[in-house]
Amino acid sequence: MLEIKDLYAGIEGNEILKGISLSVNKGEIHAVMGPNGSGKSTLSNVLAGHPSYTVNKGTVVFEGDDLLALPPEERALKGLFLAYQYPVEIPGVGNAEFMRMAYNVKAKKEGREELDPLDFDELLSDKMEILGMDAKYKERAVNEGFSGGEKKKNEILQMALLEPKLTILDEIDSGLDIDALRIVAESIQKLGSDKNALIIITHFPRILKYIKPHYVHVISSGRIIKSGGIDLAMELESRGYDIIKEKN
């Protein structure tokens, strides 16, 4: 589904990613861990197509297409979804209306039926209930004044509506309280199938107890320096990133 080969990318002349290679297949869950500033969000931004980043070398193939050649909206329409580490506030744009428009753009592209506000509201209400989100977040402006945890839930709500093939969750677990973490993790898990895939960027193995990754990768200074199974995450938790340094 996703094939990243020897990716070098940076921002404002600083090279941050220095040769990332990663292959993700349908049905797989990958966890990416690594110290602050190691390039995890850079990787997600580059994959999503943020215009501030430049790719200096390497290729990314997504569902058979050269991902890097596509504008961000086409990446999204092809089924790539980034749940932001810091979701952006959009004052003046109603949350429900925003999600309905996004839903309809994708539905139209896929030849599915577009939904009017009433039908969409039904769909939205169901998803919000699962996430334990109050109905008042429909009328509020997108992410405006949302707490950290509410913003994260709102990202998962969009994921649930857009049903992406590949989702990158950039620290979805930061800012969530214990109950919210469980609810969010369960929702993510329900959305998983053998047809889609997940990349979970996290600092904490706790979320990995709910969503069991098939692979865990450790990224440091813009490179994947170690890959393994869930045990690697546990090891990191007990011993910290020192284990990597030792081996380097």
């Binding site: 197509g49 215009p51 979701p87 592209k109």
Partner: peptide, 10 residues
Amino acid sequence: FYLKTRCFSQ
């Protein structure tokens, strides 16, 4: 950019 990653064109 946020909107574009939610399928909206420029």
